[in-house]
Design a protein around this nucleic acid. Sequence first.
DNA 1: AAAATCAAATGACATTTGTCATCTGCCGCG
DNA 2: CGCGGCAGATGACAAATGTCATTTGATTTT
Lengths: 206, 206
Amino acid sequence: MNLVLIDDDLLVTTALKTILGTDPELHVSATGSSGKEAVCLYERLRPDILLMDIRMKETDGLTAAQTILAEHPEAKILLLTTFSDDEYIVRALKIGARGYLLKQDYDRLIPAIKAVYNGQTVFGTEVTEKLPRLLRSTPEPDLCEYHISEKELEIIKGVAEGLSNREIAESLYLSEGTVRNYLSSILAKLELRDRTQLAIFYLTHG
Amino acid sequence: MNLVLIDDDLLVTTALKTILGTDPELHVSATGSSGKEAVCLYERLRPDILLMDIRMKETDGLTAAQTILAEHPEAKILLLTTFSDDEYIVRALKIGARGYLLKQDYDRLIPAIKAVYNGQTVFGTEVTEKLPRLLRSTPEPDLCEYHISEKELEIIKGVAEGLSNREIAESLYLSEGTVRNYLSSILAKLELRDRTQLAIFYLTHG
DNA sequence: AAAATCAAATGACATTTGTCATCTGCCGCG
DNA sequence: CGCGGCAGATGACAAATGTCATTTGATTTT
């Protein structure tokens, strides 16, 4: 069972590597320290499981997970974090992560990894308690499910106000062409066809 | 003071003609029995005052008034009706009618006509009572304020679903060009610039 | 210092969109 | 009968939109 570990803190990755090394079934193929690396390593090594921290400088773990899952929906990604932040949990679920564990649950980490390997989804104790309530309160698909940067969001808002590309460009001090480029990639990400569909999407699901 | 009378019921027009004829200042130039006629007669005779029923078969009085006022905002149109229907009152106000009288107020009709002639706006007693409340409860501009035909509405809905002109055309069995033409006139009527603004308008005010 | 990275810009391009003038049947009305 | 008015269609056009490949400049990384 091949693993890739991603954590900001070198101490954590090495510690984890040691802990996991005690189990003969587990093999840590590589470690990394940023979301970007996670994407690269996943592409290159196709590990059975990707164990990743959420809070990291540079690209955060959730976004990286999203990138990977967009390409490989079958990827088994286990998110690891110190805090049990509600928003993170929900988002992790929505994008299709296979697990969300608190670092304090480290004694259950190995069983959890094996469970995920067998196709299950695993959540830490605290998370499990919160889950039903969280799901009840957020039934709608959200904008934050996609990788939308701050600037992209500004552009979306402009579109949803009925502005033209030129007007959006002026209001954000960009060139019209740049706005077009941003818009183009936004549409691709959201799988929409034109600005009108985008405006509708934003007004109804945003 | 030239008047044009419009009412479905010939009995009413003739009766009114008689009543109004008792006043030497008033002169009924013509009478008609439908909204269309109202528009024609107004265009042709440019009466000082147009006295019109609201409920009529064929084009109703409000729509006709709207058509006329769109072209001639200075037109003095006095609406006459049997019922004091809230929706009608509000709509009449919004489109710029100069008065709204109940037929039961017929004893005040002549003074009202003269008042309107002098630039005032007149409402029957019952209407006056309801007015403030009605205005308070409907602050929003509405789609129905504009002359939107059934087919036009279909097209607007299509736009608000994010369909392209071609797709709208197919769904309504029209040519793409025709859809473009309709859309063009819709945008002009609503003073909007493009389909995106239309979609936004429909989703928020529609 | 060299290489990689990223935001922003550019230029070229095919489509779509919005506007306008004009044409075609068709129906009602005098 | 003929005429005017409609709903639709057409064709031509400029402008806006969406897509892509490529370039620039600044910043980071190594």
